[in-house]
Simulated assay, not measured.
Amino acid sequence: MPITPLRFVVGTYNLWNYKYWDSRKESLHQFITLHQPDILCLQELCPQSRNLLDQTLPNHQRVEDSFEGWFREGNIYWNKALFNLIVYGAEEIGHLEKWRRLFWVKLQPKYLDMPPLLVTTAHYTWSGNKQERKDGVNIRITQAQNTIRVLNQFTSPQDSLLFMGDLNDNFLPLQILREAGLTDCFSALGRAPHITRPTMPTLFHVPETLDWILHRGNLKPMNCDAVDFFINNVAPSDHKPVLATYRFLDK
């Protein structure tokens, strides 16, 4: 009888730092309780949201490190029943923000004799950043190029990897990532990417697609969505989370 390949749910979520935290925390708690992604990549993490996630995801592990970026910007949670941590790191890719990095973990699936999985996340610089407005240069192009440089240091084109996060862009950085062999989960399924910001009625803003899940190597998405979620008309963040179910391909 053939063995069913491992399937797991991944998510990326910009948590909006601590803005309006008291009004949003219950909504975030309920979202995580109901959805329980096996791998969760975070941007704009803060100590309050990290504590909430630690309590809401008791069967998950995250990176514990003295570098402040791991609890003031980004982190990665993974289901301990499915994956073991091999190694982790945080790489400079040209951010204008003090604590932002390309955060990554290498995970070993516990079942089916699968190869390691590299999981990475980043929050590219906002296009309204004062320095970018002054220089007139799209810094996200450099950040995307450096992302590929880092990914290629840790993997070959055949290795399984996930890169996800808030790219604050939907064109040139995506083109750079795609030219390096990465595919976003929506395009892989022949679907149009969804709007991920804003989450109305929590925030009114010009609709944008900023949050992405991309993959390369021995992985295939089975479904994906940018999730609308509210408790009493309050969303957990100004961004929608993007969730996707992946499976490892047969060897």
Rank of each mutant, 00 (worst) to 15 (best):
I139T: 09
R72M: 09
N79P: 08
V10E: 01
D113N: 15
W78S: 03
F8L: 06
Q43L: 04
N232G: 03
S187I: 08
R7K: 15
A188N: 06
N170E: 15
V63N: 02
N75D: 09
N138M: 10
R149I: 08
L172W: 10
T56G: 02
V63M: 07
F248K: 00
A122C: 13
C185S: 12
G128S: 11
I39F: 04
D211V: 02
L177W: 02
T202E: 03
D225R: 07
P236N: 04
Q145Y: 04
K220V: 07
R197M: 13
W99K: 06
K134N: 13
K25N: 12
Y13Q: 06
G190R: 10
Q131M: 11
T202S: 15
F8P: 02
H35E: 13
T120M: 14
T12A: 09
T155S: 15
T155H: 07
R197A: 07
T142G: 08
Y13M: 09
P173H: 06
K251D: 11
N129S: 10
Q36K: 15
L40M: 12
N152M: 08
Y77V: 01
F83Q: 01
N232E: 14
A226C: 09
L172E: 15
F171S: 15
P201N: 10
F204D: 11
L161G: 01
A180N: 10
